[in-house]
Nucleic acid binder design. Sequence first.
DNA 1: TTGCAACCTCAAGTCGCCTTGAGGTCAAGT
DNA 2: ACTTGACCTCAAGGCGACTTGAGGTTGCAA
Lengths: 166, 166
Amino acid sequence: MLGVMTDRDGRLSIGELAARSGVAPSALRYYEELGLIHSERTSGNQRRYPRTALRRVAFVRAAQRVGLSLEEVRVALDRLPADRAPNATEWNTVARTWQRRIDDRIAELERLKERLTGCIGCGCLSLRKCGLYNPHDVAGTRGSGARYLMEETEPEPEPVEAGRCR
Amino acid sequence: MLGVMTDRDGRLSIGELAARSGVAPSALRYYEELGLIHSERTSGNQRRYPRTALRRVAFVRAAQRVGLSLEEVRVALDRLPADRAPNATEWNTVARTWQRRIDDRIAELERLKERLTGCIGCGCLSLRKCGLYNPHDVAGTRGSGARYLMEETEPEPEPVEAGRCR
DNA sequence: TTGCAACCTCAAGTCGCCTTGAGGTCAAGT
DNA sequence: ACTTGACCTCAAGGCGACTTGAGGTTGCAA
């Protein structure tokens, strides 16, 4: 039988944290290396995580799904105390900026969807009208960054067949 | 002066496609290797892309932002003809499944946001109430898959201080 | 015809995010 | 005392999505 590895004082071993968070021990060590979570060590050099690590890990995973890199998450989490549970103010600061990211992401998806909807039913008989070819969200892209896809002059030398997207 | 490399018949060289799509030639070759786009070759072995490649590339980039892997995109695009422009039916099939993905993704973000909002103002004084600790979206995760984070019996041996999240 | 950018292939490198493995230690039950 | 599983470190490997570089070819135009 697997004993509960939780200390009396509520600290968690890496295995415990892994089981409770659903994140592999190797990933947790990696997160710790990056400074996303912090631990103390037992006399025998084993990690013991404060309870707050659970919240931090949950935050990390959720943030990843929103599209944040671990580095971005680190910056966000740096506003929280490493050991202590955050108070309302501390947490709210982090949560609010995070909410903004979510809103942005949602808005982006909505725009994308709208464009696609325009294409369905073949509203894109004309290339110039097709949203897929005219994304306006250059700002949001990182790295290579999308340029405007179609702003050339008349890209349609061939006659448009009704009922066809091109 | 850079001449327009577009053939009379509307086929695009890789450089042209790169310029118009905002995607690097190396990436385009990679996409082609993966079967996301297709080209024919000139007598001199240079790629010539059909116009539809532009739409495909736009689709790929947009899909990536929604969180799809290139493999998933390939599966989606396999429903479209390689050379010919898709007709309304073909395109709609693809677009609609894609819309579903977007909707799912938006819904997920909404849930996430709601949970966070619950935490703001410290609605999570009790761990059992905190959405961050009780994500219901196990289904949507791929790979290692998040388990339930807190379903243990009473995880709070210590007294809860008012005004503090843990 | 010559020059040069744009193209080709193929191998290797990069970056983020982890996982795997070797080799060794710690701690709890029998 | 011994065994066993959870833990430790450190180095290397893997995967997705590309980029970079070497070494060579094509194609347009002056």
